[in-house]
Simulated assay, not measured.
Amino acid sequence: MKTTFFSIALLLVLNACNQAETVNPASTSEVTLAYQKSVRLAGTALDMKVAQVADSRCPINARCITAGAVTVSFEASNDGKTELVTVELPAYPEKSTQKSFSVAGQAYQLTLREVLPYPEVGKTIELNDYTVEFSVSKQ
C-alpha cells in the first residue's frame, strides 16, 4: 500500500513539473519564460518551449571585434505537431526581432524582445539562468 501511495504521489509531482503555464495573449502582450520551460497560449492549442539558448554577445566590460548575438530556439507545438523556430537577436538591437512560422496549418509571428542575463566579464552564465521575453500572435 505504501509503495502504491508513493508511486501515485511521485507521478503527481512529476506531472506538475511538466505542465505548461497558461498565458492569455489578449491580456499579456509579452511572455517571459525560463530556459527549458513551456507556456500554452490561452485560447489556442499552441505550446511554446525555450529549447536552446546560444549566447555569443560581447560581455559587459570586454573589448570585442563584434557585438555578437544571442540565438534562441523554441519548440512550437500544436495539435501533436512540433516545429523548431530559431530566432537571432543582435547584442544591441534597434528593434525586436520577428520570425514567422507555421504549425499544424496555423501561421504565427514570434517577436523576440530580450534575453537575460546579459554576459558579463568574470561571470559564468548557466543555461538555467536564462530567461527569454517574447510574444506570439496568430497571422
Rank of each mutant, 00 (worst) to 15 (best):
M1N: 10
K2M: 11
T3L: 15
T3S: 13
T3G: 06
T3F: 15
F5H: 08
F5N: 05
I8R: 14
A9V: 02
L11N: 00
L12Q: 09
A16M: 02
A16P: 00
C17V: 08
C17E: 12
N18K: 02
Q19M: 12
Q19E: 12
Q19D: 06
Q19I: 11
V23G: 04
N24C: 09
N24A: 14
P25V: 11
A26N: 14
T28D: 15
V31D: 11
Q36C: 06
K37I: 06
K37D: 13
K37Q: 15
K37M: 12
R40K: 15
A42W: 09
L46K: 07
L46H: 14
D47T: 10
M48Q: 11
M48I: 13
K49F: 09
A51C: 00
Q52F: 03
A54K: 15
S56Q: 13
S56P: 05
C58M: 10
P59L: 04
P59D: 01
I60K: 15
I60W: 10
N61S: 00
A62H: 01
R63G: 08
R63A: 14
C64Y: 02
T66K: 00
G68T: 05
V70K: 02
V70F: 01
T71E: 04
V72N: 02
S73K: 08
F74G: 00
E75M: 02
A76V: 01
A76E: 01
S77M: 03
N78Q: 14
N78H: 06
D79G: 05
D79M: 11
G80D: 03
K81D: 07
K81T: 07
T82K: 12
T82S: 04
T82I: 09
T82E: 00
L84Y: 04
V85Y: 02
T86Y: 03
T86Q: 01
V87N: 09
V87P: 07
E88Y: 07
L89K: 12
P90Q: 09
P90V: 08
P90R: 09
A91E: 12
P93W: 09
P93T: 11
P93K: 06
T97N: 05
Q98Y: 11
Q98G: 06
K99P: 05
K99I: 07
S100M: 12
S100A: 13
S100F: 05
F101D: 05
G105Q: 04
Q106L: 10
Q106K: 14
Q106V: 15
A107W: 03
Y108T: 10
Q109P: 04
L110N: 11
L110T: 12
R113P: 03
R113T: 12
R113L: 10
R113M: 08
R113I: 11
R113H: 11
P117F: 10
Y118K: 13
P119H: 00
P119A: 03
P119M: 03
P119S: 00
G122P: 06
K123T: 09
E126R: 03
E126F: 01
N128M: 02
V132G: 07
E133N: 05
E133W: 02
F134G: 03
S135N: 15
V136Q: 08
V136R: 08
V136I: 14
V136E: 07
K138T: 15
Q139T: 13
